[in-house]
Design a binder for these strands. Structure first.
Lengths: 196, 196
DNA sequence: GTCTATAGGGCGATAGAC
DNA sequence: GTCTATCGCCCTATAGAC
């Protein structure tokens, strides 16, 4: 019950942030959506809105990166896996009515200069994404530098495509991003083939 | 003098939006930066903050897309041109202290669900980017569908890389994005070579 | 067209009873 | 831990003198 309230607040904050960002989201609105009271929010999060946002982003970030192995493991060929990953992203944003899946990218762009503590939290999260992705692609046969380059490209393409898809209301940019990433992977593979 | 005030307001709004987004930017803050008064702002923009933001985004968007031919024309090989384009992006975000060049992507992600009129303005701008980019790449030898796919991929990769670079305070994601795009272009070229 | 003053409301945060 | 009431601030927008 008590932990439940805390979790509902974090979930509500994440839901509102991925729709309308951090600045436009009010703590009263969060409490309404979470069926919680102001007193409860400031009991669990004494540092207020910033603290709720940071912890909510951390939770979303952890859930988000787990999708990479989840969606890619079923495919023996890594190119097929990357292709399926972006196809799933395209489907998701269509089915959700053009809502971004994860609030981290949205909020990161918005607060990079104005909320230093939140930016640091977002940097932690993105850093952990890069580390996890690098490890994953190494396990699937890429060298360390190639694996790191590929996950950086994939994360950037994913975040950027989400913005374009939401704004233009089409999943075409996500599918174009998928083709870029399979092409990038092929280049890394052929480079390795001929070079080493 | 009178047009000058109007322009200063639009410039100030753009500058603040690319640093801290739309919601966190106040009209008083805009007036301070523009050395203008509230009365002037509401004289030139009777619909208030939303109108200032929309017109400011349109101005930024037009300036932004002109960079594509400006940066790519000097290179005879289109692959070199794409590579130089992303290298310029990496340099710019480093030199500016990790500030996004253009407010359109930042704001679009933030307001897609909550400010319908601004989202429509952002969609107009991005649509014009896609059209201009498609025309440009067609002129440089790509087929229509390939040109459209490439500009969608480039715009997404660029916007996403900006968010990662700002947050992680490194230009590495922008350079990774550049390699994805040259790889994508090569794939389109070789596809055309063998297919038609 | 420019400027001052202020309305009217929502914001984040807090106090204190229970 | 929960809830209500409320503070003080800042927001967008407006009115009206000049």
């Amino acid at each position: 019950m008590s932990t439940d309230t805390r979790d509902r607040i974090l979930t509500a904050m994440g839901e509102l942030m991925r729709r309308q960002g951090y600045s436009a989201t009010g703590v009263k609105q969060v409490c309404d959506l979470a069926h919680a009271r102001m007193g409860s929010l400031y009991h669990y999060f004494p540092h207020g809105k910033q603290q709720v946002a940071a912890e909510s982003l951390r939770a979303s970030g952890e859930a988000y990166i787990q999708l990479l192995p989840l969606l890619m493991d079923p495919y023996d060929d890594l190119g097929d896996a990357v292709s399926a990953f972006f196809e799933a992203g395209a489907q998701q944003i269509e089915d959700s009515g053009w809502i971004n899946m994860c609030p981290v990218g949205t909020v990161a762009g918005e607060i990079a200069d104005s909320e230093p503590e939140l930016r640091a939290a977002a940097a932690d999260i993105m850093g952990s994404w890069v580390a996890a992705g690098t490890t994953y692609f190494e396990a699937r046969g890429l060298g360390n530098a190639d694996a790191r380059e590929l996950i950086l490209a994939i994360l950037g393409a994913l975040e950027g495509a989400f913005v374009l898809c939401r704004t233009l209301r089409t999943s075409e940019p996500m599918r174009a991003a998928g083709r870029s990433m399979t092409a990038h992977l092929e280049t890394l593979r052929s480079g390795k083939k001929y070079a080493s």
